[in-house]
């Protein structure tokens, strides 16, 4: 997947900057499952996630001129837009802190049943990774990435000292990366 992306990425960017709708259509087919997965994890609601994804792709279309290749890959840029848009929606819907926890507690396996039929997605890979991560490791990553929780919020939710949040996060991600190598 990586090699294919690096090969086509500059063409993609050029096509998008030229407002080529065919390239945009290709971009949607290629990336919408990953971005929809993020929106769905953040919002935990298919209708809200669909609205969010539509907004995200419109933002990508309108703002492609602001994307700076020297600052990071196109996928990273799109992920950031998706995460920020979804978390803004989450906040504007005035989800409370306990709602965030509830969501995380419930939905870790919720969407593994209808995973995308997509060449880049390895169902077994995800299952293997999730199985080997402890529940706390999964929750700390998901609270930060998908719910946009701050260190203070995570410290309160997981009832761990504020000073150890970063260390726990580091350990969780190191474990995640080790597991990814085994997949």
């Amino acid at each position: 997947m990586e090699s294919a992306f690096t090969y086509t990425e500059s063409e993609l960017i050029q096509g998008l900057k030229a407002k080529d709708q065919k390239v945009f259509s290709y971009l949607y087919d290629r990336y919408s499952p990953a971005l929809y997965g993020v929106a769905l994890k953040v919002l935990n609601d298919e209708s809200n996630a669909s609205d969010c994804l539509q907004e995200v792709f419109m933002k990508i279309w309108r703002n492609i001129d602001r994307y700076d290749e020297s600052k990071g890959r196109l996928f990273t840029w799109m992920l950031n837009i998706t995460r920020n848009t979804a978390i803004d929606t989450l906040r504007s819907k005035a989800h409370k802190m306990d709602q965030k926890i509830q969501d995380i507690g419930d939905d870790v396996h919720l969407y593994t049943g209808n995973l995308a039929v997509h060449p880049s997605v390895d169902h077994l890979g995800l299952s293997k990774v999730l199985e080997k991560l402890t529940k706390e490791q999964r929750i700390i990553i998901d609270l930060a990435y998908y719910k946009g929780c701050t260190q203070e919020e995570i410290s309160r939710v997981l009832e761990i000292p504020l000073g150890t949040v970063k260390t726990r996060m580091r350990n969780a991600i190191i474990q995640l990366r080790n597991l990814l190598k085994l997949v």
Binding site: S32, V38, K41, H118, V121, G125
Partner: peptide, 10 residues
């Protein structure tokens, strides 16, 4: 890790 959690949109 994020890509692993992809879901095909409607």
């Amino acid at each position: 890790y994020i890509i692993y959690q992809s879901v095909t949109p409607p």
